[in-house]
Simulated assay, not measured.
Amino acid sequence: MIYTITANPSIDYVLQLDAMTVGEVNRTTSDVKLPGGKGVNVSRILNELALDSTALGFVGGATGEMFENLLQQHQLNTNFTKVSDDTRINVKINAVKQNEETEINGTGPKITADEKAEFIKLLKKVGNGDVVIMSGSLPKNIETTFYLDIAKMIQAQGADFVIDTTGQALLDTLPLHPLVVKPNNHELAELFDTTFKNEQDIVDNARKLLDQGAKHVLVSMAGDGALLVTKDKVFKANAPKGTVINSVGAGDSMIAGFVGTFMKTNDPIESFHIGAACGSATAFSQDIAVKSKIDEVYQAINISQVN
């Protein structure tokens, strides 16, 4: 089973308007409310790929009820821990003619010690053959080591894990041997305080993550495609042609495609192919990609070995 953890989920209130003028009344041309959160995005892609997952996290209040109602539309298996504070609302404003996106993100609920303990109980059943994917921000009073502590716990129980994070928080997880890490090329450069002159520089620094414990390294490079770096080989996926509509969730989609496929096939190359297709398909979609779009993009992606 794949478990996804979204510690601080949200209702994403997405507003579209022609142009936004600060300090004045602005009227939208359309709006939509979506269940938000990086782990939720992962579960939604897994569902499109007909792969089972259970979405975990904290939800509370009237907004928490709305969040769960929105999730029901996607027929996901969930087991959220109920908390007393309200689930947050994030506002995303897309000014079309100005080609600008503005986000206003809520801080989220305060989690009590008892609520946290109740959540941890759910992870006691995780074991051999399971993968836990942790991603997204933390509620304001949860310690910054929350995901790392969970990784240590579920690893001791025999499960694999993925933490979608960057910086020192990512480096701290490497001795625990995460199944995959997925920095983009800019984040990878920042990790090692360097700049890249060419693709080989990217590969060399990705190998540092393998040397420190990661099992697989995915590096997304926007219009230059993506790389999969393993212990002895490097593979590249081209960037398929298409109009980028929504970059939110593309990285989550790539992780979902890779992890879900790897759990099923144990084939890193095919997992990379499907992961790249999921990421691009979401980028080309208004929301998280659907299966038909993933299949379409899959045909436009070629995987080649880098010498």
Rank of each mutant, 00 (worst) to 15 (best):
G251W: 10
V217P: 08
V162L: 09
A276W: 03
D224T: 01
D160M: 08
A55L: 09
V248A: 13
E143W: 00
L123I: 02
K208P: 07
I93V: 15
N185K: 14
V217T: 11
V229R: 09
T21L: 11
F146G: 10
L34P: 01
S280W: 13
K33S: 07
G223V: 01
K197A: 10
A50D: 15
L122R: 12
E48K: 12
G275R: 11
Q75P: 00
E118Y: 00
G36W: 02
I45H: 08
L49D: 03
E199A: 01
T243E: 15
E24Y: 05
I93M: 14
S135W: 01
N8F: 05
E190L: 14
A300T: 13
Q72G: 10
T28M: 13
G60H: 07
S53A: 12
A276Q: 03
T282Q: 13
I89A: 03
H216K: 13
A117T: 06
T265H: 07
T54C: 14
T165S: 12
L56G: 10
V14Y: 03
M1L: 10
L70A: 06
C278N: 05
S292Y: 01
Q16F: 01
D18M: 01
V244Y: 07
G36T: 04
D193H: 15
R88Q: 02
E65K: 13
E24A: 11
Q168P: 01
V59Y: 09
A159L: 08
I5P: 05
A222E: 14
N238K: 05
H74V: 03
L56E: 07
A222R: 12
P268G: 02
K82L: 12
T28Y: 09
A169S: 15
H74C: 01
Q286C: 00
V306Q: 09
T261I: 09
V306E: 09
P183V: 12
A19P: 00
K152M: 03
L76F: 11
F161P: 04
V91D: 00
I93S: 03
A159H: 10
G136T: 04
F146W: 11
R44M: 14
H74G: 01
G260V: 03
I269F: 03
K92G: 05
P139V: 06
K82N: 02
E103L: 05
Y298A: 06
T261W: 03
D31Q: 14
